[in-house]
Each structure stands twice: as structure tokens, then as C-alpha cells.
Simulated scan of single mutants.
Amino acid sequence: MARGDGARPAYDPAGHDTELRAALQDLRTGRWMAMRDLLERTTAWWQWTARTQVLAAAAAGTDVVRAWRAEEPESVPAAVMHARVAVERALRARRESHRRTHELWIEAWDASHTATRIAEPDPVPWVCLLALAQLDAGLSWEEHRVAAPEPTLPVGPWGLLAEAGKRDPCNREAHHRMLQFLYARGSSGRLAEAAGYAQWAAASAPPGSALHVLPLYVRVERYRRGAGQDAALDLHWVAEDATREAQEALDTWFARSGTAERSPLDLNHLAHALWGALRFREAARVFDVLGPYWTPLPWVHRTTDPGDPARALEVFLQARARCRAAADDDPGRRF
């Protein structure tokens, strides 16, 4: 395999999805037809979910989706993208403590509920509602304090998760939105709940499911919250449970999933976990699949300045070089 060791990787939300990249380029120039055509060709729910999420992030600062709906008011994909964009704007407003956060939240909730009726078989409107649940930190809404299917798990938007699951079992984004809901509730005890949830979801998922990577995200979140406070956290990447989580994600997800289905973010988390666990040869396999792409997360949390992606890229490059050197020294390595 030609690896291009000297090339600096790029951050590209489309990753290896060349069709999505072309639609994004068109969207950024104010045109929506390539987005519409791409979504009409997208039939697998996992790909539909991923593509609509990336497109919405790019469209949220524009009027492209509004222009699409004005031209094609009966379009179901346009209605779903309207909900997607509304949710993205509400979440950004909360992160920026914008004065219109509550107003945008209600608008997004209305758009998402409308989409559940218009696009009944689609999991994405339910994923949108799950994403908005994190804004309700006080659990004021009844749909956000439903009893869990297991007594060891906390109350939460389980009904919304179940609706997404009916339409797309083990929907990757739906479960990540549940994690974000649990993170938003604050304390270290809530982080323990998130860890329990991630383990439960992974244990319930079939081989090849991206849910087997969820525990790696919680481990990064635990490190992020403790960075600078507990020197022992530097050792938790090589702890027995950390090593086991990384190996299980490698064996149960990476080794049993198709290349197109692996998100760059999941691949980066797996490469990071294996590198942290000193499983350099295994990590080299993941770096090879990543090819020219990388994501700032989780690498930014291994730097002294999480706001500087350039430092995160240097950590990524150092980790990749270390892992590939170990792989190259292995006489049994085959590319």
C-alpha cells in the first residue's frame, strides 16, 4: 500500500466520500442542486445520516436550504435538511451563549417534529430531536426523562432513541447524541453514567457496528475533563480497561466493517486509542486506512492548547510516524 508518509494530512469533513465533497463545494458557492441530487441517490440510512449532518454543518451559515425549499416546497429531503440546519444553528447558539438560543431551540424542535411526519421512515428527524435534548439540562421536557431500558442506566430521551432505532438500528449519530445529552448534565457522576451507557450500547451492537467505538469517546472525554488536574490520567491510556476497549474496537468494528462505512472521526479515535495503549503496529493499520485525512479530535486533547489545531496535527503526525516505524520493523507486516 502506498502510504505517502511525507504528506501532511488534511481535515476534510467529507473524508473519503468524493460525492459528498463535490456537493459541499457546490453548496459553498450558494447552489443546492448538487446537494439535492446527492441525497436523492443516497439510499443507505447510515450514509444518509452522515451526509445530511455534514451538509447541514456547511449550510447552517447560509440560505441555501431555504432557497431549495422555496424552489421545491414539497421536497421531503429539503424538509429534513431544514430540520438539520435549524438544529445546527440552535446548538451553535448554545455554545456561543447567544441571546436567541431558546428561540432557535424551539424553531429547531418544530422543524424536527414536522420532519418526523413528512419523512416518517427517516431516522434523521429523530436524531435531530435527540441532538436538541442536550439543551434541556434541567430535564424540563417529559420526552427527555424517560426511564431507561436497563435499571443501571439513567433517565433520558430513550423514546427518541427508540424511534431512531426503529428506522435504523444502531444508528451511529443517534447514540453519539445520547452521549452528548449525558455529558451536558455535568458532574463526574454523569460521566460515569456516560461510560456505562457506552459500554451498554457497544455490548448490544452487532459486529461491524460503529457503536463499538463509543467507549473510546468517553475515555477521551474523561481525559479532557481531568487534564491539568490529575497527573495519573497520563497513564489511563495504558490501563487494562483502556487497552481492552481499543482492542475490542479494532477487532469488532474495524476488522468487520466496510471502508466506506468508517467515519474519519471514528478512525482517528481508534488510531489514538491504540497509539495511547502502545499498540503501535495495530494503530499503523488504522493510520493507513485514514490515508490523507485526519480530524482535530481527539488529538487536540493531547496538547497544551486544545484551541490550536496546528499543535493537534503535530501530535497526530508524531503518533503516525511512531506507529508506522514499529510496523515497518515487523517482518510479518504485509501491506
Rank of each mutant, 00 (worst) to 15 (best):
R100P: 00
H98N: 13
L20K: 00
C128A: 14
R302I: 02
A50H: 11
M178F: 02
T243F: 03
D5Q: 10
E173Q: 14
V220F: 09
P149V: 07
R84P: 00
R311Y: 06
G307M: 07
V76W: 02
A195F: 07
H16D: 15
F280Q: 06
A321E: 15
R145I: 09
W253F: 11
T152A: 13
A210I: 04
D12K: 03
G196F: 03
P13L: 01
L214R: 03
L104N: 04
D305I: 06
L132C: 04
D305N: 15
R8N: 05
A133N: 04
A232S: 12
R8E: 06
P73W: 13
Y217F: 15
L55C: 02
E107P: 10
F287R: 03
R225K: 07
R100G: 05
G61K: 08
A79Y: 00
L179Y: 01
P157W: 04
A283H: 04
V65Q: 02
R167N: 10
E120Q: 10
G332M: 05
E282W: 00
M178C: 05
A273F: 04
T18Y: 08
A255G: 09
H98Y: 06
E72L: 13
R21E: 05
P169L: 09
A2F: 12
E88P: 01
S97N: 11
D5E: 14
A325P: 07
